[in-house]
Nucleic acid binder design. Structure first.
Lengths: 161, 161
DNA sequence: TTTATCACGGACAAATTGTATCCTTAATTT
DNA sequence: AAATTAAGGATACAATTTGTCCGTGATAAA
């Protein structure tokens, strides 16, 4: 059970957008070059973010992406689910109903107790991501990355936007 | 990010083994028939459980599987990791080092803050599964499944073991 | 108005992983 | 000796992930 790379890309792209001045648009070309990932494929992730309403998009020359709302109103879960979908990590197939010695095919049963625990674990995972806002991520970033590196990166992106 | 079916199968098989009297061996053929899943493929999951030391195996006629330790000493995480592996659900590719405006390829950096949150979520998920013991699962089972169904199932498996 | 740049989105292809079957070998009971 | 069982390798098929390519429409700048 491993998340796709698109999730990582999307998270990093969102932190870039979150650090930009208001109204600044960043194209997928710039985002792709900045992160060293294929532009066309990254574009799919950005489309997912747009479809989820997390980013605003602008077509045409000098077009690109910007956050559609403040970074403290966007959680990491929002981003992960936008790209990865919101299906649970455990897909109960109800194999208990295959039990050959009783006919449980049509009987109504409470939710499978094994699935229940898996769902509980799934929720714990989501809760952590739901509580972490994009603004928190930016704050963390400023703690661990040297200021000059942060500034140079911002200037680089701004210079291309 | 979705777990494979083998995890579900393994969890259900372990609950069957946990309900058996001491020293009883259950073959993969019986486990497969009971759960309505392909025997050969289920066998792979059982091999994984054996490799992880969660079940004892016995070859030859009347051979099969039994728990290798008490059900309260086996967690759901033990079972999930035995089948699914213990790789984290988020695989950080360190794309922050691809940043074209600074050379971060070889610089030592603290763990990526985005990865850190993903790992935290991963741990929350694992914690729930680690705390839930196989014995707890059995207890839950007795609450939600009618007693006659439980008894008939046990008798069916015992009759074939 | 023309041209270049951008997001969008469909079609396609390659690589990886998940699901499953088959068969041989070795161990063990009857 | 014969039958049964787990172990494990080889293989095939399906689904998903990863990635590319190209056409369309929007839009800004020349």
């Amino acid at each position: 059970m491993i998340l796709g790379n698109q999730v990582e890309w999307a998270l990093h792209c969102m932190t870039v957008l979150a650090r930009m001045p208001e109204e600044t648009l960043v194209s997928s070309k710039v985002l792709a070059e900045f992160h060293g990932v294929p532009k066309e494929y990254l574009s799919k992730a950005m489309q997912a973010l747009a479809a989820a309403g997390l980013v605003h998009t602008q077509l045409g020359p000098r077009g690109g992406y910007s956050l559609s709302r403040p970074a403290n109103k966007i959680s990491m879960l929002d981003i992960v689910e936008a790209v990865e979908g919101d299906k649970k990590t455990f897909n109960c197939q109800e194999i208990r109903r295959n039990n050959p010695c009783t006919n449980l095919k049509t009987v109504k049963l409470p939710v499978c107790n094994i699935a229940a625990v898996m769902y509980q674990a799934d929720n714990a995972w989501r809760d952590v991501l739901r509580k972490k806002k994009l603004s928190d991520v930016i704050a963390d970033l400023k703690e661990i990355v040297p200021r000059p590196v942060l500034d140079k990166s911002l200037d680089w992106v701004l210079g291309k936007s």
